[in-house]
């Protein structure tokens, strides 16, 4: 339990640092900005209480907001994403059963599951974020464009990070130990 908490806190710090130090300065073609830090919310353990999910997401968003100086925007997006997370996780079917101890990761639930899961939540997050930023519905097409491009970049980074940080697949479920 303590190990899970500390590893999540560590992940929180590392992802925030990467986001703030590196990714915030990447502006592909001027406006496409990857937001990898949401990975933290994506791969919180399934056992996390729902209310804690919201609080943690709120806090995560707020910390990013403080660095980016956009108070409230990332927080709102993260809370919305955290709100959707249990719903999405329950909706997407996986060949593998949810069991205690498994994590929302490619290693535990498969590439397809994880891609769908993270894609939906990323788009949800980015939608709220960019809508908050422009704060109106004019030029909706441009906003949609930004949402989609940024989502794609973020998603690529998320998938990559999965392969970088979890090189050893834990084949608990498939039985190959």
């Amino acid at each position: 339990m303590i190990r899970i908490v500390t590893s999540n806190i560590l992940r929180f710090l590392v992802l925030t640092a990467i986001q703030v130090a590196v990714l915030n300065h990447i502006h592909l073609s001027g406006y496409v900005n990857p937001y990898l830090y949401i990975l933290f919310i994506l791969i919180l353990p399934f056992e996390t209480p729902k209310w804690l999910l919201l609080i943690v997401a709120f806090f995560q968003g707020l910390v990013i907001d403080l660095f980016v100086q956009t108070p409230g925007m990332h927080a709102a997006a993260c809370v919305f994403m955290a709100f959707l997370r249990p719903l999405i996780a329950a909706t997407i079917s996986s060949k593998k059963e949810y069991e205690p101890g498994i994590q929302p990761s490619i290693q535990d639930l498969g590439f397809n599951w994880f891609l769908t899961y993270s894609a939906i939540l990323t788009v949800a997050h980015h939608t709220i974020l960019f809508m908050m930023e422009v704060f109106h519905f004019y030029e909706f097409a441009i906003t949609i464009q930004r949402i989609l491009y940024s989502s794609v970049i973020t998603l690529i980074l998320i998938i990559l990070s999965q392969y970088i940080f979890y090189r050893k697949p834990r084949n608990i479920i498939s039985g190959k130990i």
């Binding site: 209310w51 919201l54 907001d65 956009t70 409230g72 925007m73 927080a75 809370v79 955290a82 709100f83």
Partner: peptide
Amino acid sequence: HFFFLFLLLETVCLVIVIQNNDYQ
């Protein structure tokens, strides 16, 4: 409580956004 907490937090976020961002 999950839903209400969500609403509460989003409201807080919106208030923060509106209070702190000139454009918004």
